[in-house]
Computed example of a mutant assay.
Amino acid sequence: MHHATHATQSSATPRRLRRGIAALLLALNAAGALAQAALPTVEVFKSPYCGCCTDWVKHMQAAGFTVKVHNVDDTQAARAAAGMPDSLASCHTAKVGGYAIEGHVPAQDIRRLLAEKPKAVGLAVPGMPQGAPGMEVPKPQPYDTLLVSREGGREKVSVFARH
């Protein structure tokens, strides 16, 4: 008799636990959908032949951003149109929330930019540093995400984040 009571209790506990987990997952999914809805779409201008740009797009999508890709022949024209100087060039340019994003900028830096809303042109990771999102390697090199702004018609560049 004692054994049967134990079996009833143990089967009820996992059922309650499963219901609790299901409710928690639904709540997390709803919170995730709300957070994703709040993020503006990222428009990326890249060469149709660039694999690391495609990997950066996947990084942004994994971070919850909706990404619209424009394959272009002239990434320099896209960079100029976004207001990003050629001196900070990388292999792709993006626009999000009124900001220009140049190169392999981590999604967390873009989220911070969108949250803090500084008066700026945007963020840049010049070149193609090994270890940046889309450029993953076993031994990443340190790199900086730069905040690009304009003061009196001149570009001002400062370190936004170190990686």
Rank of each mutant, 00 (worst) to 15 (best):
Q141T: 00
Q141C: 00
C53Q: 03
H92D: 06
T41I: 13
A62N: 08
L88N: 10
E116V: 04
E102T: 10
A30V: 07
V121F: 03
T5L: 15
R154W: 01
D73E: 12
G97D: 04
I21Y: 09
V69H: 01
L114P: 01
A89S: 15
C52R: 10
A161E: 13
V44Y: 03
D74N: 14
Y99P: 09
W56I: 15
H70K: 06
A37D: 12
T41W: 07
R154V: 09
A37M: 06
P40L: 14
K95A: 07
P48N: 09
G83K: 14
A100S: 08
H3V: 14
Q141L: 09
G122T: 11
A124R: 12
S149E: 05
L24M: 08
C53W: 02
P142H: 15
L39T: 00
L28Q: 12
Q61L: 04
M135N: 03
G103N: 04
L123N: 06
Q141S: 08
K46N: 00
I21E: 13
P40V: 11
G127V: 03
L17D: 11
H104K: 11
G122Y: 10
D86F: 03
A89C: 10
H104C: 05
G20N: 13
R79Y: 10
R18H: 10
R16S: 15
S87W: 02
Q61T: 13
D55N: 10
M135G: 02
V159L: 12
A22D: 14
L113Y: 03
L24H: 02
A132T: 02
F65V: 00
A62F: 00
S10T: 14
P14F: 13
P140W: 02
D73N: 12
V72N: 01
P142W: 10
M84S: 13
L34I: 04
M60Q: 01
R18A: 15
Q76C: 05
V105A: 08
Q130D: 10
H163Q: 12
V159R: 14
A107D: 00
A81E: 09
A22I: 07
A37N: 06
A120I: 13
F45E: 05
L17W: 06
G83N: 11
A7G: 05
K119N: 07
K117V: 11
L123V: 11
I101N: 02
V121C: 03
L25Q: 15
V67M: 06
I110W: 02
H92N: 07
T145Q: 06
V157S: 08
D144C: 01
A107V: 00
A78N: 04
L17R: 15
D74V: 08
A124M: 07
A161C: 09
A107Q: 01
G64A: 03
G103R: 10
K139L: 01
R79Q: 14
A27W: 07
A120G: 07
S90T: 06
M135C: 03
